[in-house]
């Protein structure tokens, strides 16, 4: 059951820009100092989305597995840079965190998309960009947020819990045992947004993918089933990524002689 989608041309898009003008006008009136950021953000969104539209058309037409994989890898790389851009501890901390974050997002997202693509949806060919790219985009977006939350929370828990961690180490505990509580708290912090969204999906929020499919003419029941797959896969990807980051990153807080490094060396 599909109905034709209402076309949005450039003229209609120009009309939509009135909406961002409302936000800019409000900012100027209230002297929030956000007008410039909003204008730059709007232009960036316009350019990025238009370009990705053309990239997707090209990818769908060329339909080559290595190009699809290249785009997926680029998504993970961009997500890694975004997830670590605001992490505290300065450049040395970010340099240490980036490879951990990259591998964790890559593994968490790849395992999830492999299961969804090969087992749940049974995509053919396996690299079909029409499925793989939007699904992987959603997965990486969530994994990125989970990674940023997990890493940030682990850093702050390791800093505030130094006394307790050293108390454990002094009793002969392994770094793994000594950092168990900070690791647990960091993983929970990364999972909470996903758990919250699981609880309200379909009641408070109608997610983008489902809304998009309905607007594009799919039957709502089919869109809902896709959305259920999506929320499950996002939960898996976030859990895998957050666990990977926390388990790997926490090792970097200790020396090989089970000594807690001073915060400045992180």
């Amino acid at each position: 059951m599909t109905t034709p989608t209402i076309e949005i041309g450039w003229a209609r898009l120009a009309l939509a820009s009135a909406l961002i003008m409302v936000a800019i006008a409000l900012s100027a009136w209230q002297r929030l100092g956000l007008a410039k950021s909003l204008a730059i953000g709007a232009i960036r969104a316009l350019v990025q989305l238009t370009l990705i539209g053309y990239v997707l058309v090209w990818l769908f037409n060329t339909n080559r597995w290595y190009l699809v994989l290249g785009v997926l890898l680029l998504m993970v790389l961009t997500a890694t840079l975004a997830a670590t851009a605001r992490s505290p501890g300065g450049r040395p901390a970010r340099r240490r965190l980036r490879p951990i974050c990259f591998v964790s997002i890559l593994l968490g997202s790849s395992l999830t998309i492999a299961y969804v693509g090969a087992v749940v949806i049974d995509v053919t060919p396996w690299y079909n960009p029409r499925y793989l790219i939007p699904l992987f985009g959603m997965i990486v977006g969530n994994a990125m947020n989970g990674a940023a939350l997990a890493a940030g929370r682990l850093q702050s828990e390791m800093a505030s819990g130094r006394a307790q961690i050293e108390a454990y180490l002094a009793l002969g505990a392994s770094p793994q045992q000594a950092s168990a509580e900070p690791a647990r708290r960091a993983t929970i912090a990364a999972m909470i947004p996903t758990i919250n969204s699981l609880a309200v999906v379909g009641v408070v929020s109608l997610p983008g993918m489902m809304t998009g499919q309905i607007l594009a003419g799919s039957a709502p029941t089919l869109a809902v089933r896709y959305q259920i797959v999506v929320v499950f896969m996002l939960a898996a990807a976030t859990a895998l990524t957050a666990t990977g980051i926390v388990q790997w990153y926490r090792r970097s807080f200790f020396t090989s002689a089970a000594q807690l490094l001073p915060p400045i060396q992180l």
Partner: peptide, 20 residues
Amino acid sequence: PVRALRREVGFVFQTPSMFP
């Protein structure tokens, strides 16, 4: 081995840190 050493050489800190 460092962990075995620490079990032979106990340490009490200035501010006691209680576990839950």
